[in-house]
Design a protein around this nucleic acid. Structure first.
Lengths: 204, 204
DNA sequence: ATGAAAAATGACTGACGCGTCATTCATATA
DNA sequence: TATATGAATGACGCGTCAGTCATTTTTCAT
């Protein structure tokens, strides 16, 4: 019965997601996963060889989506006018926030565990992190000539941006328990385009 | 001999700092700490009751310094002119970066472990994190009337700022292995005051 | 020099959690 | 109803590591 296998595997995966998110990778025991999935200890090993392996399965979907999101970001900072540049930044922010919120648990698992030192996912996290920096840096440099954005060294500004995205999203998801996608993407855009200055026109 | 005790305790503490920073709290075993400190297993328990206890000792100095730094930040965003506001922001950034770099290892330990889910320090981290947000939010609101900074809701902008500080500092400390305090504080200030816009005058 | 107090030692213990495997159970097919 | 298949079970073995404690070493006052 192939459907039974699929059901069991999904139960294990969902249990792992819940537990990794709630108590973290390190503290989650295989015995916790199987207990929550409602299967026996041995059953786990019919589907995964280790905790590391189920972790990689947990984050696989999100990392794939994230990678293709980055590949889609060719318009970031592009535009013939300040307004067009801003619209593209807004669009980027909006899609990024939607991606995060639509995958809240796995996004949190990946970024939380990736930042810390213990896990087996250090390299996975590092990979997508540097990919992000690289894309932002690249888009900044590509569009420097338009004169609508200015910066000294794109890598530094890219690190500012990723920090801004990352921490503020988790602040709203973790502390506020709710993200208003429209409002947050608009205000991120305003901040990126003009900082705290009142001299730059705001969106809308 | 009181000095011998002090020396032993310092050896344990330094070993713990090195190991927490290099491999993380979870992966560090007490046996590793005592091996690196050059003392026996039992000696550890003469000074600390658990790994949690030595961790709290490791981060104590930095958290104390951080708390008093925040209490000193009364000038943040204050000023009668755009330039004065900017100078105060620059000063804040400069001091913050110096604090981080002067306490590189413990700062990294605290922020890395604090963000992840496993540790016993979740509450310590959460405490200083919310304190930071609160100070920035408060300073923004206090100085809204000057008209030199503008924002919708100070808490959101505060979360942008802490993200910007946090991730970019660790990017330079971890990836670049070096932080140019002058340059980074100046560019952070530029970004905070004017984003990527070319319309806002830059520092210096 | 001496011995009592303090400090350090490291072998030992027990708990815990991963992964295995001999066995049971459910379902499909004859 | 009987048989075959393979999914699921859960007790157990084994390694790891935190924490203990009887013993040894060091310190220092007399």
């Amino acid at each position: 019965m192939i459907e039974r296998q699929e059901r069991t595997k999904k139960q294990l995966l969902n249990a792992a997601i819940d537990l990794f998110e709630a108590v973290g990778f390190q503290k989650t025991r295989i015995s916790d996963i199987v207990a929550r999935a409602g299967v026996a200890q041995g059953t786990f090993y019919l589907y995964y060889r280790s905790k590391e392996e189920i972790f990689l399965d947990v984050i696989k979907e999100f990392t794939t989506l994230f990678a293709s999101f980055l590949e889609d970001a060719s318009d970031l900072f592009a535009g013939d006018s300040f307004d067009e540049v801003r619209r593209n930044v807004l669009d980027f922010n909006h899609r990024l926030i939607e991606l995060y919120t639509a995958n809240g648990k796995t996004a949190r698992i990946l970024f939380r565990e990736g930042a810390s030192q213990g896990g087996p996912f250090k390299s996975v996290f590092h990979g997508i992190y540097t990919q992000f920096i690289e894309i932002v840096r690249n888009r900044l440099e590509q569009n420097r000539a338009t004169g609508h954005v200015t910066f000294e060294d794109a890598e530094t500004e890219a690190s500012f941006l990723i920090g801004l995205f990352d921490r503020s999203l988790f602040y709203f998801m973790d502390v506020k328990k709710h993200v208003d996608v429209e409002a947050l993407s608009r205000r991120m855009t305003d901040f990126i385009m003009g900082g705290l200055s009142k001299h730059i026109p705001k969106s809308r």
